[in-house]
Amino acid sequence: MSNGDSAIGQAADAVEDASNAPALDVLARAGFAVMALLHIMVGGMAIAVAFGQPGDADITGALSQLVANPWGPVLMWAGVAACTGLALWQASEATVRARSLPGRERLGKLISSGFLAVAYGSVGLSFAGFAVGLRGDSGDSTRDFSAALMAHPAGLWLLVAVGLTTMGVGVYFVVKGLRQGFRAELFRFRGTRRGGLIDVLGVVGHIAKGIALNLAGLLFVIAAAKHRPEESTGLDGSLKALRDHPFGPALLVAIGVGFIAYGVFALVRARFGRM
Rank of each mutant, 00 (worst) to 15 (best):
R188K: 15
F187R: 14
F182E: 05
V162I: 10
R188E: 15
F173K: 10
K176V: 10
G181R: 00
F182I: 03
V174M: 01
L186T: 02
F173D: 04
E185G: 10
F173T: 01
F187P: 15
M167K: 07
R188V: 15
G170H: 05
T166D: 11
F187C: 14
E185I: 03
V160C: 06
G170W: 01
A161G: 12
L186A: 02
L178S: 04
E185S: 13
V171H: 09
L164P: 14
L178G: 04
K176A: 12
G177N: 07
R188P: 14
T166L: 07
L164Q: 13
Y172L: 06
L178W: 04
V171L: 10
R183G: 02
G177F: 08
L158R: 08
M167F: 10
R183Y: 10
V160K: 02
T165W: 12
V162W: 07
G163R: 00
W157A: 00
L158W: 08
A184F: 14
L158Y: 13
F187I: 15
F187K: 14
T165H: 12
L178H: 03
R183L: 00
T166G: 04
G170M: 02
G163V: 08
T165P: 11
W157Y: 10
F182T: 03
V160D: 01
E185A: 13
A184M: 14
F187S: 14
M167Y: 08
T166P: 03
G181K: 02
G168K: 06
L164G: 12
R183M: 12
V174N: 07
F187D: 14
E185M: 12
R179P: 07
G170C: 06
F182G: 01
M167C: 13
